[in-house]
Amino acid sequence: MNLFDVAQRAMSAQLVRMNAAASNLANAGSVTGSEGEAYRPMRPVFAEELDQSTGLATVRVAGVYRSEATPEKRYDPGNPLADAEGNVFEAPVDENAEMVEMLESARQYQNMVEALQTAKQLMLETMRMK
């Protein structure tokens, strides 16, 4: 494994995280007729992947987990999706948390790009030495 693999996998992992946050935001406010069907926010969890031979550590997405939060029950008998009691269940998405998640992900992605750029520059300089 080299530095480029490390950066590439880290950026892919951040992309998964950003996509999950985007999916959660997209589903904010979506309603269903039963508690079980309601959308549960997704959250990827990262794990370290150490390459023993080089000592470099990259990232892998260990899994994408669904939040355990209970959907919000709302009385809305006029809604065509409402159940027998006139309740609908709203996806328990915390928009603020998702925005923070997205910002943090973007920042970490940016940092990785910057580090990669510097490393690439130095490698090119080393190669161009006559």
Binding site: V6, A7, R17, F46, T58, V59, M112
Partner: peptide, 12 residues
């Protein structure tokens, strides 16, 4: 490489 690994694992 080591510091890049740290930056890569900022969210782990």
């Amino acid at each position: 490489g080591l510091i890049a690994s740290n930056i890569a694992n900022a969210g782990t």
